[in-house]
Design a binder for these strands. Sequence first.
DNA 1: AATAGGCTCAACCGCCAGGGT
DNA 2: GACCCTGGCGGTTGAGCCTAT
Length: 280
Amino acid sequence: MGRAPCCDKANVKRGPWSPEEDSKLKAYIQQHGTVANWIALPQKIDLKRCGKSCRLRWLNYLRPNLKHGIFSEEEDNIICSLYVNIGSRWSVIAAHLPGRTDNDIKNYWNTKLKKKLLTKQRKEQQAQARKLFSLNQEIKRESGNLLLPVEVIPQTHNDWPIEHYSFPIPITKASSVQDNNLNNIQTLSIKNLETKLEEVEFSDSNQLQQINVNINSQYPCDIYFPQDQLYYPSTESINWGDIMSSLVSDIEGCNQTMPQEDVTFDESMFYGIMQCLQTQ
DNA sequence: AATAGGCTCAACCGCCAGGGT
DNA sequence: GACCCTGGCGGTTGAGCCTAT
């Protein structure tokens, strides 16, 4: 047996509110100040609406001092920083943005801000890829025939659109040994990586002071290692040289126990490792 | 001009927590 | 403790608008 409905669905109006309905609701609340019982309200003011619908209409549209329209850059930053820290708790986020409702913020995030951040992320990622490529070439030159990737091209991942730590992880070309290699690489590199990443501090002059990257934390939604790129670790502040160096030393150690094969890098392998890190 | 597809956002849905009985 | 009721919340939907073809 299901839950009893909060109102008689057959006898309530649904859909957009008319100006008359709005003014009835507004008038009642202005006269009484508050609503003690939203469920009972529609009957009192002769509205064929669900009490919950009345409440929502008031909170999201009719109540005074609501701000509608374009979000400012500052509001964007606040939303992003809070989202990164607390996830999709829109009511909490709304509490930090006077005049904005949780519904507004939720809509804004889902329709605009997320895309905006994705675009920004991709641009940064391309710059990062170029940087890594030249870094790899340099290391390669310095280290002779070191087994490092010739191709480092972080791709846009359809299911996982934001790739934060998209530096390469080596795998062998031979699929039969990939699993073993992954295990080796994981055990050898993970601690190093983790340390490096946790050392990364980043700041944003506008919004946030230093926030440590906690790669063990659970991101609460469909975006991982996300959006924080805006005010969190900028690629500029990450010492990729250090990270690459530690990877190189791990790879060297790893190679001693591995068959001599060409090693290439793969994005999916990286995410596998990052997932492994998260579950540790 | 027609229309298909994408986008926006107000409104709805269903779950959960907390208070009252 | 069990049950009921309500408020609050996050996720989802769909009508209407916009844009590209």
